[in-house]
Design a protein around this nucleic acid. Sequence first.
DNA 1: ATAGTTCTTTGCGCCAGCGCAAAGAGGAAA
DNA 2: TTTCCTCTTTGCGCTGGCGCAAAGAACTAT
Lengths: 240, 240
Amino acid sequence: MSKLSVLPKADLLPILSRAALFRDFSPGELIEVLEAGQPRCIEESSFFFQQGDPASRLYVLTDGRVRLSQVTVDGQQVILRVIVPGQMFGAIGLTQPEALYPVSAEASEDSQALAWETGVFRRLCENRPGVSFDLMGMMTSYIQEMQDRYRELATERTEQRVARALLRLAAQLGRKVEEGVLVDMALSRQSLAEMTGTTLYTVSRLFSKWERRGVIQTGRERVVIVKPHDLVQIVEGLAE
Amino acid sequence: MSKLSVLPKADLLPILSRAALFRDFSPGELIEVLEAGQPRCIEESSFFFQQGDPASRLYVLTDGRVRLSQVTVDGQQVILRVIVPGQMFGAIGLTQPEALYPVSAEASEDSQALAWETGVFRRLCENRPGVSFDLMGMMTSYIQEMQDRYRELATERTEQRVARALLRLAAQLGRKVEEGVLVDMALSRQSLAEMTGTTLYTVSRLFSKWERRGVIQTGRERVVIVKPHDLVQIVEGLAE
DNA sequence: ATAGTTCTTTGCGCCAGCGCAAAGAGGAAA
DNA sequence: TTTCCTCTTTGCGCTGGCGCAAAGAACTAT
């Protein structure tokens, strides 16, 4: 199952150049950045870092899928974000060198990333005033997303939130297949529950209902959205 | 009731210098920043800006209290944040000049702020590389707070969340009084419900219970925390 | 194959919290 | 003082969603 073949650096370049963070880097500068980073390979269900580790590195995912999650004192998990190749994560140490990671970064399949020591990365950026601006822009967007999701969690019914989560995942990692749009990652009922503040039982019951109506098709850790428009209706509270 | 006396600029200086954002500005630079800003006075329950307005300015509150909130399509409010003097708000336009404010900024009492055109402010910062770093640091902290609150909303019971909200408010705007720590703002059951994703009825019932036990004392839009430690126990789920 | 593990489904009972309704209480304005 | 408005309290009934339990399904390893 493991595809532990390490990607050669040559293959990383196009991935980095697609990353929003590096969008106005020249090819030469990109290579410089690339050389300064350390490739990391992590197997499924292992961690790039865990909540409470010193935040000494920041990462850009180059292959796989990563879940950023927190655990509560009594052991419940909450998934805050899913990372796909090209996205940055673990950047907190950039501004707060003494900080600990407030989340864990778990590979939900075998994954690879480039890692930079925060100090090294900070120096790489210092010559490029645009980068901190881009970083601020990314943070701003994420703040907005978190605010939206906070509002949804505070005001919407479980069914709407789960439908919304599916649409968000489809937008981020949807892949067109025969029957509709596949959410292209291993996605258990449990995971989706941890993304939406509900339980695996409720997600399972919703899936059963939606599948009966032909809105989605599901399998073990697999969801295909057949009628996205129907999910939108559910989100808007038009379908009961 | 209105204290519409405008603060003279001389009084603004010490407030600005307390603002985290300007902490390493020299007095001369601070005056320059101050002169570039426009003072704004807003009466209770009016708005500095509303959700959907073009994000053309950013603000630092100099007097009063401001609630940052979103409204849902069906009219429910969610309060995301309370702003006290010295804090910045509405900074989204700084990185995304075309953006619209994603929240409304409502004065919960007569309030005053300094406002800068985003373009002007950006130019003020360009000479000072430290500022964008400080801004990033503030954003990072806020992201962490939102993540924590998201987790709490997703996993904790209503009673715990309301207790937590009180402790947060006390930390931000607590004032020592005879009986304990007063949450120093007009705080209705409704507002607290909008901060914690519950209803005014449930908050009222919790207040009644806690008051019976002597944990808090309440009045109309007024809360005094008598036994903070008991609230901490409730947060930790030790007291039912 | 076979056994073991993990994920999923669904019946059932339960209860935390919602929300209406109606009465009460506190301030502000005239 | 009286009126008006807003905020607060509490009884009551209801229900969305939780969570156990147990069976079934899908995948993995030997």
